[in-house]
Design a binder for these strands. Sequence first.
DNA 1: AGGATAGCCTGCGGGC
DNA 2: TGCCCGCAGGCTATCC
Length: 283
Amino acid sequence: MPELPEVEHLRRTLVPHLVGAHVLAANLLRDDIAQSHGVKGVPLNRTTKPQLLQGRNITSLRRLGKQLAILTDSGATMVIHLGMSGRLLVRDNPRNPPDHTHATWRISGPTGEHALLFVDPRRFGGIWTYPSPDTLFRYRWNTLGPDALDISAATLAKRLALSARPIKAALLDQGTIAGVGNIYADEALFRSKIHPQTTARLLPVTRVAALAEALRAILGDAVEAGGSTLRDYVDAAGEPGRAQAAHAAYGREGLPCLTCGTPLQSDTVAQRTTVWCPKCQMP
DNA sequence: AGGATAGCCTGCGGGC
DNA sequence: TGCCCGCAGGCTATCC
């Protein structure tokens, strides 16, 4: 389940291979996983290789929330969202791609010639192409809130000030704050001792500050650990992450709270399984 | 208009 | 052993 830390770790592992690389070829194996820019999006097809960066030179990799953008010297920009089960793999040998490989590239870069594969069994992810970074920012990334990795207390407070929803729902909303998924939402609420059902706008500023601090700490630590591996996620080299060992709340229903020993409670909040400590995280 | 809900999709684990 | 079912979950469309 790639959330912000997994995507940021992926970005960092891809940079040495991709930045400065020339895209020799692009291949779309499934038309419906890629769309060209626009509010509604226009489906790409197998003939639109330049939009998939064929012939371009990659200049940088950028991330906002859970989305990764590949920028090129021509302006052509490609956004990849991994969804639930998506992976981007760098391989030396393009033969025998995994099942559910939907797009492939051949690149020649600083570390040699490689195959880049987009694999996504559940197809909750996808690829979006834009003629320029500016169109990406205006038509897609404008709908996202500020990135959670360096969210400030003041910014978070401003985003939550009008929301009547449970704080858990607000955290999961990418338009409020970008990059938080179910795992790190529970972890951040646990760390800041906030009950997931608390109405967002009713949180005192000191609690919001604690939440912002918890988000930065937890996401930052997870990035350094290479992300959490639950079922699907691996980085560009196929390596699993190590952050799941640090989870204090997620997946620990019924187990003792690491702070007070009280069994953790679980229920559905904002349509998601949510785990919290009934003693530490008071309503 | 903001918020809640259904549905997309495959793999996996539990139960029988 | 093997099958079936439920669950996992990010995001969009749709409804209220």
